[in-house]
Design a protein around this nucleic acid. Structure first.
Length: 379
RNA sequence: UCCUCGGUAGCUCAAUGGUAGAGCCCGCGGCUGUUAACCGCGUUGUUAUAGGUUCGAGUCCUAUCCGAGGAG
């Protein structure tokens, strides 16, 4: 019988560390490198599953913390599981509440075996979060890929704090590993350690000690540090210390230029709210860089968002003038159309990257991209 | 014709006689495992007009203009 999960590298680029792979899950295959749209509360904001299929999404995210708070994972289990419930039959990755613990830091208290924090975005109650709880919820939801509960640190952060969050993440990795039961669900450990290479190496060592995780998340980046600072430790991490035969998921990174560079270092998976959030605020990715549709200069602009783009929004011919109007009027269609366009941009960017890898010309692709106007996104 | 109320930023309105503010609009910036259709910053005035009282007037007095309502 064919195993439920496999990660098969199809080609490794000879001049960079980029690789193209096929990640097989219980709900289908994922061609990497891949960008995963974020659908925290069982919806990629503004898009239907049909829209997502149309723009080529292969896998989307959901979040155990948010879904447990509302409507509750047991309800979703009763309704047939997450895929059935939200009408998305392709793979889903569930993130733990680790990032929420970080973003709700002021309302939180970390203890050895759990984290206590105030659900200020729901009813304000103090709640307890544990690795076991995260696993139970993810298993109720039935996600294909489950991230361990971890602790994400901001930047800059004192060494002791970074060290403690790495150690706690490793401890919790062990508990998640032990609580992992579903054979149709792949468990990922998460590498922490901030901008300290020694802590990052220790994190990997401890995760490998815990057991055979199917893949690895790389957390704790894109938390406010300069991009170069990230690559200083990310590069050796990927090229020297992380297992090469397992999927690597750089969590929370969505800047196009950073994506292209990270793929060159050997990252396989990304997710980020940037394309959808900035879309709702009126910004669009284009082949000429970022544009802000709210600017008055678009009021009489008859061109589409990006004449070089093949997304449904551009193909349908919506003008910048019209989108400017929708954004200024705060009409929901503006957010929807820009979200669709932005996601398509990142999804197709990863397709372009994959093609370049398969043709063994990633170095040239990356160089050309980074020196173009697209490569100068100032997000 | 008379009476009443009103006239302050592009709009809607604040401001015990002590150097005019807010919201919206407009302009700009930010957004990275979603507390986010969000957050932050900024521009804008002969206070209808002309006089008067006062140390000092958006505020009190007089006249005029404009608007709304009422009476005839």
């Amino acid at each position: 019988m064919e195993p439920l999960f496999s990660f098969q590298i199809e080609h490794e680029d000879t001049s960079t560390s980029a690789r193209a792979a096929t990640f097989t899950t219980a709900h289908g295959k994922i061609k990497t490198p891949v960008f995963m749209p974020v659908g925290t509360k069982a919806t990629v904001k503004g898009l239907t599953p049909c829209d997502l299929r149309e723009i080529g999404a292969q896998i989307i995210l959901a979040n155990t913390y948010h879904l447990e708070m509302r409507p509750g994972s047991s309800l979703i289990a009763q309704m047939g599981g997450l895929q059935t419930w939200e009408r998305w039959d392709k793979p889903i990755l569930t993130d733990s509440g680790g990032f929420q613990v970080f973003s709700l830091e002021e309302h939180m208290r970390i203890e050895d075996d759990k984290v206590r924090f105030r659900a200020v975005d729901y009813d304000g109650a103090w709640i307890e979060w544990t690795p076991q709880k995260n696993m139970e919820i993810a298993q109720n939801l039935g996600s294909d890929i489950c991230m361990q509960l971890d602790i994400c640190c901001g930047y800059p952060a004192p060494y002791e704090k970074v060290k403690r969050s790495m150690e706690l993440s490793a401890t919790w990795a062990e508990q998640c590993f032990a609580a992992h039961t579903r054979p149709d669900q792949a468990l990922f450990g998460i590498v922490q350690g901030g901008m300290d290479l020694d802590l990052r190496r220790e994190s990997i060592r401890r995760l490998q000690e815990v057991g055979d995780f199917f893949g690895y998340g790389i957390g704790g980046y894109s938390v406010g540090e300069p991009h170069e600072t990230m690559f200083e430790t990310l590069t050796p991490l990927l090229e020297q210390y992380m297992p090469k035969d397992k999927p690597r998921y750089l969590m929370g990174v969505g800047n196009p230029a950073t994506l292209v560079r990270a793929v060159g270092k050997g990252v396989d998976m990304f997710d980020c709210v940037l394309p959808t959030r900035t879309a709702r605020m009126g910004s669009a990715f284009t082949s000429e860089g970022r544009i802000k549709l709210k600017h008055a200069r678009f009021a009489l602009d008859k061109t589409v968002l990006d004449p070089a783009c093949g997304c449904p929004v551009c193909k349908a011919g919506f003008s910048r003038s019209y989108l400017h109007h929708l954004v200024k009027s705060k009409e929901m269609l503006g957010a929807i159309l820009l979200s669709k366009h932005n996601l398509y941009y990142l999804l197709s960017l990863m397709n372009r990257a994959r093609e370049a890898i398969l043709q063994d010309r990633y170095e040239a692709f990356q160089k050309s991209f980074l020196s173009s106007r697209e490569g100068r996104f100032d997000f």
